[in-house]
Design a protein around this nucleic acid. Structure first.
Length: 565
RNA sequence: UGGGGAAUAGUGUAAUUGGUAGCACGAGUGACUCUGAAUCACUUAGUCGGGGUUCAAGUCCCUGUUCCCCAGCCA
């Protein structure tokens, strides 16, 4: 650890790791793992776990394994494996030897199971799933022993062998650990270690007819890999005694399980089930819909890996459930994008402006700064001509007090171009403003007035002559409530969906430099927000996603005024 | 009503293990500004309740309250 880090306060997990390093508990080694089940896509909540595990490994000169917990072939698919690998890499983490798989340890697990049977610590049980539930008892009443609990070792060995070979139908038998049916911890009431599943596994094919349960498999996986700190979420706290029990019975390398609280965010849901429901019900357009908290969705929305990693660092880690304000995620996003995004000009809702005293047919190439926060980003040329577009909301015929922008008779600056004064307003038959006439001051070329006069506003604009058309997708919170689960009776979280979370603008004008943008390229559209090019773009058709808006004091003012009246 | 966890400004998170409750986000005010952005300055607001020990308690003791997790052959 660097000197800077030693003064930094450690979260409770890192405190444990640092303490172990100090006492030499693991011989100075730190090995963690991120163990997703390949049955769905990763989301921002997983990012918290990923950054914790990979982050700790990095900070303590250790390693972190990406290991797929693929012990349930009925739910898992290669597609998910691929996307998870992509997402972890995109976040910027490296997992040395490539991805690992629990299924690679099936034989070892099987041998360990036989060892437990021989020790009289496991038995084959013929109880059905329903009977098992009955025998387990309840939270307040202890369970009762299975009638098969005292089978001989030989019989258990024989039966288990046959289970493995596929001699019995699914659900007819299980292998259970012989622990304590009276334990107040239900996980210790003879938990199932293996179930019979005649299913094809995405990696082991039809080699196995029995598959290990999580509790049995996970500790062994950790043990085999020499994991030192097995970091998982809070709901596994009740499982720790079982994790410990299996490893103790086997007498093998015994990592320390540490539990932390999973991430919750306002205005969104995080469970795989609910996310899947949004996709299947067509409430969003797939897992990578830019409104989704999935990593693929955030990526498509325009999030940078740095922003997400920084967010994960900022939120910390603890042992109690908390809900993080989405505003914090957005802050981390803007913080990074502000530093890294090239500025360009784009007009979302164009209002045509004719500059009456500008020469017909003339096009000037004006210098514009690519990133005021990064001199090395250089400059570019933007074309200016007689007809331009400005934002509709940058003009008001009857401006209220604090409105600084264009109005009849008022002078404003066009960014990097000229000062203009509005001389005339053209309306359609419904009274809507459809066109403005202005005059410009040639002496203000570039945006500065030689006489030193000031204007209160600077507007972004795009030249009609060279403008590119674009479709721009504006996104808002997926849900109308901070907590989507806060519903009326008989309604579920989907009743809180924000029906205005997507607005598609098709008549947008963007500056010509955007012609060579590639999908996922990020930009700041000046005065509007951060945007990124969507995959849906094709030659001649630009589609942008709005990643985030810029902070907007004027909008805030308006909102406050509206509230007052 | 069994067991396992947890409670610090609106939100999130620290507090050298008993010694001035700090930081970030948000909100507000002002400065600056060729982005009403960014930046900078300032302001706002907190130890779940009640007892106790102590010169001194977020921290230790007692007690109460509230919240989360567990009865898959899911992970």
């Amino acid at each position: 650890m660097s000197e800077e880090n030693t003064t930094e306060r450690l979260d409770f997990v890192r405190t444990i790791v640092a303490g172990d390093n100090k006492t030499g508990k693991w011989g100075g080694k730190v090995i963690t793992r991120f163990p997703p089940e390949p049955n769905g896509f990763l989301h921002i909540g997983h990012a918290k776990s990923i950054c914790l595990n990979f982050g700790i490994a990095t900070e303590f000169s250790g390693v972190c394994n990406l290991r797929f917990d693929d012990t349930n072939p009925t739910k898992e698919e290669q597609e998910y494996v691929d996307s998870i690998i992509e997402d972890v890499k995109w976040l910027g983490w490296e997992f040395g030897d490539g991805p690992l798989f629990a299924s690679d340890y099936f034989k070892q697990m099987y041998d360990y199971a036989i060892e437990l049977i021989k020790k009289g610590k496991a038995y084959v049980c013929d109880l059905t799933a329903e009977e098992t539930r009955e025998y387990r008892g309840t939270l307040t009443e202890s369970g009762k022993d299975s009638p098969h609990r005292d089978r001989s070792v030989e019989e258990n060995l024989d039966l288990f062998e046959k289970m493995k070979k596929g001699d019995f139908p699914d659900g007819s038998k299980t292998l259970k650990a012989k622990i304590d049916m009276a334990s107040p911890n239900l996980n210790m009431r003879d938990p199932v270690m293996y179930r019979i599943l005649h299913a094809t596994h995405h990696r082991t094919g039809d080699n196995w007819c029995v598959y290990p349960m999580y509790d049995w498999a996970h500790g062994i996986e950790d043990s085999i890999e020499g994991i030192t700190h097995s970091i998982c979420t809070l709901e596994f706290e009740n499982h720790r005694p079982l994790y410990d029990w299996f490893l103790d019975q086997l007498g093998i390398h015994h990592p320390q399980q540490i539990e932390f609280a999973r991430l919750a965010l306002t205005y969104t849901v995080m469970s795989k089930r609910k996310l899947l429901e949004l996709v299947e019900d067509g409430l969003v357009n797939g897992w990578d819909d830019p409104r989704m908290p999935s990593l693929s969705g955030l990526r498509r929305r325009g999030f940078s890996p740095e922003a997400i990693r920084n967010f994960c660092k900022t939120i910390g880690v603890n042992k109690f459930n908390s809900t993080i304000d989405l505003a914090l995620l957005e802050h981390c996003l803007r913080e990074d994008l502000n530093k890294t995004s090239p500025r360009v000009m784009a007009v979302l809702r164009p209002l045509k402006v004719v500059i009456d005293n500008y020469p017909d047919g003339q096009v000037e190439e004006l210098d514009a700064i690519n990133n005021p926060n990064d001199e090395s980003a250089g400059t570019r040329k933007v074309p200016f001509s007689k007809v331009i577009y400005i934002e509709q909301e940058d003009f008001m015929e009857e401006p209220p007090k604090k409105f600084f922008r264009l109005a009849p008779g008022r002078e404003v600056r066009l960014r990097y171009a000229y000062f203009i004064i509005c001389t005339d307003v053209v309306k359609d038959e419904n009274g809507n403003v459809v066109e403005l006439h202005c005059t410009y001051d040639p002496a203000t070329k570039g945006g500065d007035a030689p006489d030193g006069r000031k204007v209160k506003a600077t507007l972004h604009w795009v030249s009609d002559e060279k403008a590119l058309n674009a479709e721009i997708r504006l996104y808002d919170h997926l849900f109308t409530k901070e907590n989507p689960s806060d519903t009326k009776e008989n309604h579920d979280f989907k009743s809180n969906i924000n029906s205005n979370s997507l607005e598609v603008l098709t008549n947008c004008k963007v500056e010509p430099s955007l012609a060579c943008a590639k999908p996922l390229d990020r930009f700041q559209f000046e005065r509007l927000g951060y945007f990124c090019l969507d995959y849906d773009s094709s030659d001649g058709k630009l589609v942008f996603n709005r990643t985030a808006i810029l902070r907007d004091t004027w909008a805030k003012l308006q909102k406050a005024q509206k509230k007052k009246s």
